[in-house]
């Protein structure tokens, strides 16, 4: 019936009505896309090559000067380094712990929904509010963590968020706490897609220990999920902003300066929009590089078509 209504022969030339409908239905999204996404993005790229500041009457072209300045800007170098350290800590830890939690939850029947909810809770909690809770928890003098440390005999516990030695570590811990549950949920979805029969086959084939079965079945079949989780965690942690803005404002002494916070400060506090746009471009380049790496890895291996 359907084939009679819409003959396949017409595929190459869509009926006029259908083409018109297609255009009409994509038009609102197209306009919004153009005005709110494409043009501003191109404008940001353009701004990066100017020294524009809010209120200036015209754009002043300065070529690559912003990027040259970046190379000699100590603050930017620190921000980049801190971002790399932060990402390098949060990504493996939140993925490892997320996978561990998913495997433990999946391994039994008791308490599944409960623990899933517990680990997922930080994802749906207002980050700013929870950052305040962490600030109290990690407070050098009145915080419960240091109270606990003093109780077990640590005489001068670290100052956590207020010391330049530990601030990045503390932020990373909060970052892990925030994204562990998200990764766990993705891993749980990946695990549930592995056919049960494969585990049965592995047992019959002689995989006696749980570790053998993990290596033979779970880890390889989780490959696509893991790759996706790695990419998305990298991208999410490169974007770290909320906790820094709320808790440290990049301090103490720039020790927690990160890429997006520097961009925010240059653009919206110092109103140096050109320089800020240049930093945005670096940020965009990092994100694109990560996505490119993911596509590369996807093509090379984990595809079991």
């Amino acid at each position: 019936m359907s084939d009679a209504a819409l003959p396949r022969a017409a595929t190459s030339r869509a009926p006029v009505g259908e083409a018109l409908a297609g255009l009409m239905l994509t038009l609102p999204a197209g306009i919004a896309y153009l005005v709110l996404l494409l043009l501003p993005t191109l404008a940001a790229v353009t701004l990066a090559f100017t020294d524009y500041e809010l209120g200036m009457p015209a754009l002043n072209w300065i070529g690559l000067d912003n990027f040259r300045e970046m190379l000699s800007d100590r603050g930017f170098a620190i921000a980049l380094r801190n971002t790399v350290i932060y990402v390098g800590t949060v990504t493996p830890l939140s993925i490892g712990l997320g996978l561990g939690a998913a495997l433990l939850i999946e391994a039994g029947t008791r308490g599944r929904a409960f623990f899933r909810a517990v680990f997922f809770l930080p994802v749906v909690s207002l980050t700013v509010a929870m950052a305040a809770a962490w600030q109290y928890l990690l407070h050098p003098t009145i915080g419960p963590l240091n109270a606990l440390l003093r109780q077990v005999g640590v005489t001068d516990p670290p100052f956590w968020l207020s010391s330049s030695d530990t601030v990045l570590l503390s932020l990373a811990a909060i970052g892990v706490w925030e994204s562990l549950g998200y990764n766990m949920v993705l891993f749980l979805a990946g695990l549930s897609a592995i056919p049960r029969e494969l585990y049965a086959a592995a047992e019959v084939d002689g995989a006696r220990s749980a570790f053998d079965r993990f290596r033979l079945v779970t880890w390889p079949l989780l490959g696509p999920t893991t790759l996706f989780v790695v990419t998305i965690t990298l991208i999410r942690s490169v974007r770290v902003f909320d906790t820094v803005a709320v808790l440290t404002q990049g301090g103490p002494n720039k020790a927690s300066e990160v890429l997006l916070y520097t961009m925010y400060r240059e653009g919206f506090t110092y109103l140096r929009l050109g320089y800020s746009a240049a930093i945005t471009l670096v940020f965009l380049a990092i994100v694109l590089a990560l996505v490119w790496l993911q596509t590369k890895a996807m093509d090379r291996k984990i595809h079991y078509g």
Partner: peptide
């Protein structure tokens, strides 16, 4: 355990390791 039973099994879905 299955591994200790000296049996081989062919599954309905074949259960081949896709990787």
């Amino acid at each position: 355990r299955p591994a200790e039973r000296d049996v081989a099994m062919v599954f309905q879905s074949y259960a081949l390791y896709p990787h």
